[in-house]
Amino acid sequence: MTLDNLTTHQGLRLSGIHICLGDRVLVALNARVLRGQTLTVMGPSGSGKSTLLAYLGGFLDPAFEATGRVFVDGVDLIALKAEKRRAGILFQDPLLFPHLSVADNIAIAIPETVRGRRQRRALADAALEEAGLAEYGDRDPDTLSGGQKARVALQRVLMSQPRLLLLDEPFSKLDAGLREQTRQLVFDQARRAGLPVVLVTHDEEDAHAAGGQVHEVGPA
């Protein structure tokens, strides 16, 4: 395998993506997103831009029809079941699992190959520390602030060692100061982990902060 070969396969490649609801074409897209780069899909709400994320994640409602090919680092994503795709996702709500402690929310994302309760907990604690939440491991997630929750959600998704990151308007519910901060954190982390990112948003600033290519999806 040559170096050139390797690079051509790296990152996310979307070819001939076509998502329809009945006769209506919601998304039509060809794109290449290198590791650490971001593809921003812009569109007003109701334009169907989120179906792209559902398609990539593997949970598109059967009511939609989708064609096209998706490769991440040369792996055909569409051939895999949702849980095999390792497509990490962040929604506008952090959606921490309410029945688990903060640390367990992260620990549950650790791949099965990491064995031993203690080792898994140690990984989770390290991730918390990285997020500046070292003391919060045993807390009820519902007692965290909005920004803290967002950071836990990010650590959780990174912990699962995703192939790519899908962002579904993840900053829209945060207030302005926090939004800027969180945005920076997410993109930094994605870059550091070398993840291709697909961001769906209606916020120009998001697109600007992401700094990558922008794909516009038409209004409904």
Binding site: A54, G57, G58, F59, A82, E83, K84, R85, R86, A87, G88, I89, F91, D93, L95, F97, I108, A109, P111, R156, V157, M159, S160, P162, L166
Partner: peptide, 10 residues
């Protein structure tokens, strides 16, 4: 979405 996140986590 909790299930989607879980699937995304593998």
């Amino acid at each position: 979405r909790h299930d989607l996140i879980a699937a995304g986590l593998g």
